[in-house]
């Protein structure tokens, strides 16, 4: 049995190296490097594994022009079959992006699953997934950490909840937002780009659709960022403790008890 899977991918700020004052004098966030949203990459991996196992196709979709990372091309390098970009000049809120994506997904046509990540870095969390599922009228599940069974017409997932997890069966098509916690050498770890595909698809055209082409007149803005303030950071003065020295460890225990 084969499945057609659409993966929504995003480029996000890389907050890992954010040290010191986060805002510039203009009150705007200082420029940070950007990266492929790690949870979206996990979702792509999940889709590709299903394709490897069951056959079918993986189509990837994003909104906006690429910044530092061309996430769609990165997906093609890993084995996605097709990529589409929705173009926009505006800095859209999540709901407006969901409207564009929903229209694009309808344009792509029949599909079994729409996957994306629970996006942590910028605080979007599960918002895009829900906004999308609501507009598409699909079943939805968030905080999915694995797909335990996929059969024609339905999917079973393990989902993280407070104090444990639950197993949920959904009808297809469904929107799944993945939040995966990877262990060392976890089989869910995203694959690397493939050298040959990279050479072949470096300049492959990626079809683009504007809102007008998708039949949308322009989605109203419902949420506006009104301001940012830096939060006082707790200054941690780090003391090194020599792991090999018993005296140092004993001194540490005296300090902390």
């Amino acid at each position: 049995m084969s499945y057609h899977i659409i993966v929504v991918v995003r480029e996000v700020w890389d907050t890992r190296d954010l040290v010191g004052e986060p805002l510039g004098l203009d009150g705007v966030l200082k420029p940070l490097p950007r990266r492929f949203d790690p949870e979206d990459l996990n979702s792509l991996e999940q889709a590709l594994q299903i394709k490897d196992r069951e056959g079918g196709s993986v189509t990837v979709l994003s909104v906006g022009q690429p910044g530092e990372v061309d996430v769609l091309r990165e997906c093609l390098y890993r084995g996605a079959d097709e990529a589409f970009r929705v173009t926009t000049d505006e800095d859209l809120d999540t709901g407006a992006r969901a409207a564009l994506l929903a229209a694009a997904i309808r344009r792509i046509g029949a599909h079994d699953l729409v996957l994306l990540g629970v996006s942590v870095p910028e605080g979007e969390n599960s918002l895009l997934a829900g906004e999308l599922a609501g507009r598409l009228g699909h079943a939805q599940l968030t905080y999915v950490d694995s797909l335990t069974e996929l059969v024609p017409g339905q999917v079973t997932c393990r989902r993280e909840i407070e104090m444990g997890s639950e197993f949920v069966r959904l009808p297809l098509p469904a929107v799944l937002a993945l939040g995966v916690y990877l262990l060392k050498d976890d089989p869910r770890t995203p694959r690397a780009a493939k050298a040959m595909l990279k050479l072949k698809l470096k300049k492959a055209p990626i079809p683009e659709w504007s809102a007008a082409e998708l039949g949308l007149a322009g989605e109203p803005r419902r949420m506006r960022l009104a301001g940012l303030t830096a939060l006082p950071q707790r200054n941690v003065e780090t003391h090194d403790v020599d792991a090999g020295s018993e005296a140092a460890l004993a001194a540490l225990l005296r300090d902390i008890r």
Binding site: T94, G95, A98, G123, S126, G130, G134, L141, M223
Partner: peptide, 23 residues
């Protein structure tokens, strides 16, 4: 902002095409 609320509010907002913010 739980695995229920953050699951439910965005989906409901999507259905209603309403404004939504999580967390």
């Amino acid at each position: 902002a739980s695995t229920v609320g953050n699951d439910l509010a965005p989906l409901t907002a999507g259905r209603l095409e309403a404004a939504c913010l999580v967390d």
